[in-house]
Write a protein that binds this DNA or RNA. Structure first.
Length: 297
DNA sequence: TGCAGAATAT
DNA sequence: CATATTCTGC
């Protein structure tokens, strides 16, 4: 029965938040304490409304009663799927398998998560031709939407009984009130790479937000996200084109590099690195995520 | 305080 | 859709 009873499937309209807000993790060490065990869990670790300040969060509040509805939504696929959520969604072939890609190889390594078949070595995060192949989204992070649209992660994780300590059932993202702003999106290098490619493929004329979004085909990515990014990107292009101070032909000292600059200018850009990650957040985020290179978790 | 990056408004 | 402005986190 497709029609979910009220207060059931949509109950709490619990949403999954991508780990966009590393700050949450930063402020909630307990999340790291145990670290995600599975992709699914990882995804749920960053509940926007997860009361970040809840110091006592040490207790994830497993709540045996908290039914794992989240996954139920998709896992129930076999038995009863919430068609309501599927309305307007791209067909399966168009969808991006986020399950594994959500976790970058490095992350996986950090947490010793094994994503399908030793992803670390296998998946080169910098594989190019993202567009060339129709396999769109890959290792991308996405924002947490709370509005209407919200692709569900096609999780193949053979559900282990994860503890659904996601924020309280209602309003996983943002304390229940959808009046708020959307989670800040993080343009990862991968994402930006796709973006740049999309723009390139579309050409100057066709590179409009809508088209870009389509071409990128990143679940969770909104037109507005792209529009905003595009705006910055254009500014960046303009700047680099102008003889203002093009120390280099067109290196991207800023975050707006064509993805992964294999050869960062030797003069080390004063500002951030060549990656599209949020300048300083990245570092902390990575650390918070257990990426400490010197220290061990 | 200023800056950068993303969201939101026009 | 493009541009401007606001917001937020360092």
């Amino acid at each position: 029965m497709p029609a979910p009873s009220p207060g059931d499937s949509l109950h709490g309209r619990s949403r999954w938040c991508a780990p966009t807000d590393h700050r949450d993790i930063l402020r909630n060490p307990s999340l790291l304490a145990r670290g995600p065990q599975t992709p699914a869990e990882y995804v749920m670790l960053s509940p926007r409304g997860g009361r970040p300040h809840d110091a006592t969060a040490a207790t994830p509040a497993p709540s045996s009663s908290s039914s794992p509805r989240h996954r139920a939504g998709m896992e129930a696929g076999a038995s009863g799927r919430v068609l309501e959520w599927e309305a307007g969604l791209p067909v399966a072939s168009e969808l991006t398998p986020v399950s594994h890609p959500l976790i970058t190889p490095a992350l996986a390594a950090a947490f010793r998560i094994n994503i399908g078949g030793g992803a670390f070595a296998a998946a080169s995060p910098f594989d190019d031709s993202p567009l060339a192949h129709d396999s769109p989204t890959s290792h991308l992070s996405f924002p947490c939407d709370e509005d209407e649209d919200e692709e569900e992660v096609e999780e193949e994780g053979e559900g282990e009984g994860e503890t659904e300590d996601t924020a309280s059932g209602s309003g996983a993202c943002r304390g229940g009130a959808r009046a708020g702003k959307k989670a800040r999106m993080v343009w990862t290098p991968e994402l930006h790479h796709r973006f740049v490619e999309a723009v390139g493929h579309l050409g100057d004329k066709g590179a409009v937000p809508k088209a870009i979004v389509r071409l990128m085909n990143v679940e969770g990515l909104t037109r507005e996200n792209v529009a905003s990014h595009l705006q910055k990107y254009r500014i960046y292009l303009k700047r680099t084109r102008n003889p203002a101070a093009p120390q280099h032909p067109q290196p991207f000292p800023t975050a707006y590099g064509p993805s992964f600059d294999p050869h960062p200018p030797s003069d080390a850009p004063s500002r951030s690195d060549y990656c599209a990650f949020p300048s300083r957040e990245r570092d902390q985020a990575l650390q918070a995520m257990g990426w400490k290179r010197t220290k061990d978790v």
